[in-house]
Structures are given as structure tokens and as C-alpha cells.
Design a binder for these strands. Structure first.
Lengths: 201, 201
DNA sequence: CCGAAACTTGCGCGCCACGCAACAATGCGC
DNA sequence: GCGCATTGTTGCGTGGCGCGCAAGTTTCGG
């Protein structure tokens, strides 16, 4: 068996299967929701579409919402990495802006992100879960901001505040871009929105 | 029967009973959750504590979360009213800040708000519902901001952005104040947080 | 090749949201 | 006051969800 001698110790069959079913479930959830409407899709259907038992679905995700929003968490990590990649002396909000735009670009033209946003905009349940996910993402992003700015995430409000407002602004800009079917690219809309906001340290 | 000749056409027994049970359910939900822990309280228990059938609970609220967060919506309305009461030529963010602080003061020393925040900070489900409520509140607050600034809430991102960021900042400040058991009054913490944020029109 | 570890699955339980129809309370015109 | 229309309450039934548990199956590592 040929395995690249990289740092990652070669994922075994087990791991590959796991992430495969995980992805299958997530994609199936999104596809079925788009096709038939969110509330008409049962967990049972998603499991069936992914070729797995209903019980197994809940081994991977605690809810339908979590399945659809699974990639959300991944994106959050990419934002943190993108922020880490920015020069240390760059002003925080600029660094945040670049980090968001970079992670956005990395997605490439991602139609599924658009579908997910549309779904969340239409269905309260999904929207609530999405907001909750973002709050968790804000916590980890806040930790990196704290590290970067040399503040204490426990004692100072600043890191979490900056993280949360950046994430929230980004989402609102994207939602607004989707809703208004603007001719300008989404990236530009997000950038303009972030430029409008300032958080003093 | 003595009724004040005010604009409100004297609420009949029906309406009074309704809002009474509504309040009873909401308060019972909060009290039981504080006493026994959120996830150990069933809808059935709340209904029983309010002296009403389980089925009736769902005539008033679609979920436990909604019951506990019922007063949240009322507070949102008071914020909008407080904003409407601010002078028209006052800069928006200043007006927002005053509106938030005023509505806060109007609560007086409200221990239930504190309890609700604590609950929401500890329990994901409740937190998600709270965020969702705030998003709705942001929509109505955004409408008032749009009116005030002469912008179009549909076409411009600004109203909703300002509304959402103000609400979010306020909540984060309050949460942080709760978590850090600060000696300074909560009002001050919220004000300082709002002062740190700027949203350009 | 074999035992241990990990994953899948079926079953069962408790809970929740809600439609429906019968029943009770209230409001209102007289 | 009185009776009827309106509105609220309740019990029942249904469908769905989340998850603990234990048995069966697959993968792993030596």
C-alpha cells in the first residue's frame, strides 16, 4: 500500500469510511432539504439516502440541523487558520477581514453554501441551530484573537466581541447579498460590510 | 364595574385569564428550570405547576424555550419604543445606546433576567432559541432604524446590521458581566461595550 | 490469523409538537 | 338576566426525534 510519508499517519479504512458516511449524510441532508423542503425530510430519509440505518445517523449527528450545518464548523476552522496566517502586526479588524475573505475564496464558487443559507433563511429551526454554531465558532475564533492581541479571553470582553461581530456581520452581508440578488460579487458585499464595522480594543 | 376610560377598551375576563396563564406558564418554566435544571423539566411539569393541562401549554408556546424566553420579546418592543423616544437628530448609535440603557433601567433590578441569561449560557438548546429570538427582534428594531435614518430595510444592509450588532453587543456584555461577577454595575458594562462598537452608515 | 477495539444496527423508551373533536367558559345582543 | 355565537381548554391519537443498550459485524495491529 502506497502512503505518502507526510505528518498525518495515513488514515486507515476505518477513518475513511467514517468521514465518507459523514459526508454522505451531510450532503444527503442538504440535497433532500433543497428538493423536498426542510420539514418534509425525516431523519429516516436522510439515513436511507446515505445507505445507512436511521440509528447510525444519530451516531454522527445529534439532529438534522447538525447534519446540514456540518460544513459550517469546518469553515470556522479555516477562518481561524486564515487569521493565524495573517501577519502578527496587522491591525486586528483588517486581519479578520482578510481572514474571512480568504476563507471565502478558498470555498471557491460553492453552491452548497448558498443553498444552506437559503434554507436557514427560510426555516426557523435551522436558523437557530446556525446561530448556535456561530456562537461556538466565535468562541474558538475569540481564543485566537485573544492570543493574537495578548488579551485574556476570560477577563476581557474584547476577543469574543470582535469574533462574534465579525462572524455576524459576515453572515448578515451574505444573507443580504443573497436576498437582494445583487450584481456585485458576494466577496465585495462582505468586505464592504466588514469595512463598515469597527470594534475598539 | 369600574374601568378607566383610557384608549385600551378595557380587557375582558377572557383576555385577563389568558395573559395570566401565559405569565404563569412562563414563570413556572423559569422557576422549575432554575430549581431542577433545564433538561429535567418536562412540559408536563410546567403545565402542572401552572395548573393547566399539558395540551394547553402548547396552545400558548410551541416549546419550553419559547415559554422561558417569552419576556424577551417584550423587552425587544420596549427597546424599539425607547429608540422612538430618542430625539430624531441624535446620531443613530448614540440613540441606540441610550435606548438599550433606558430599557435596561426600566427593568429595574430584574433577577429573572439574570436567571434566564444564566440558563441560556449553560444550555445549548435554550441559547439557540434565544439567538433566534434576538434575530427576530433585530428585524423589528431594524425597521425602526430604517424609518429613523430614512433608509430602506430591504435594499440597504445598514438597518439590520446596526440592529443586530447592537443587540448582540448588549447580550455579550451582559453575559460577560455575569460570568466575571464584576463589581461595576451591569449598565456600565453594557454601555462600555456599546461604546466600543461603531457601524458606519 | 486472532483477539481487542470500534462501528453499525435493531429495539425500546421517554419526550415533544400538534391536529382533531368534544366540552366548558365567556361575551354580547336583546 | 338569557341564549347563542365565539373562544379557550382538554384528552386522545399520531408521527417524529434523540439516545441508551446490547448483539452482531468490521477493522486493526501484532
Amino acid at each position: 500500500m502506497v502512503t505518502a510519508p507526510n505528518g498525518v499517519p495515513a488514515p486507515g479504512l476505518r477513518e475513511r469510511k467514517k468521514s465518507a458516511t459523514r459526508a454522505a449524510l451531510s450532503q444527503a441532508a442538504l440535497r433532500l432539504a433543497v428538493e423536498h423542503g426542510w420539514e418534509k425530510v425525516r431523519v429516516e430519509d436522510i439515513a436511507a439516502a446515505a445507505g445507512v440505518s436511521p440509528r447510525t445517523f444519530n451516531n454522527y449527528f445529534p439532529s438534522k440541523e447538525a447534519a446540514v450545518l456540518a460544513t459550517h464548523a469546518e469553515r470556522a476552522e479555516r477562518i481561524v487558520e486564515a487569521l493565524r496566517a495573517r501577519p502578527e502586526q496587522e491591525p486586528l479588524w483588517d486581519a479578520l477581514t482578510h481572514a474571512f475573505l480568504d476563507s471565502f475564496r478558498a470555498d471557491g464558487p460553492d453552491p452548497s453554501a448558498l443553498q444552506r443559507i437559503r434554507l436557514a433563511m427560510d426555516h426557523t429551526q435551522l436558523a437557530a441551530a446556525q446561530l448556535r454554531f456561530e456562537a461556538e465558532a466565535a468562541a474558538t475564533l475569540g481564543a485566537e484573537i485573544a492570543r493574537r492581541t495578548g488579551t485574556d479571553a476570560e477577563r476581557d470582553l474584547y476577543p469574543r466581541l470582535a469574533a462574534t461581530l465579525a462572524i455576524t456581520t459576515s453572515r448578515l452581508a451574505f444573507e443580504h447579498w443573497v436576498a437582494s440578488a445583487s450584481a456585485t460579487p458576494a466577496l465585495e458585499a462582505v468586505q464592504q460590510a466588514l469595512d463598515r464595522v469597527r470594534v475598539m480594543p
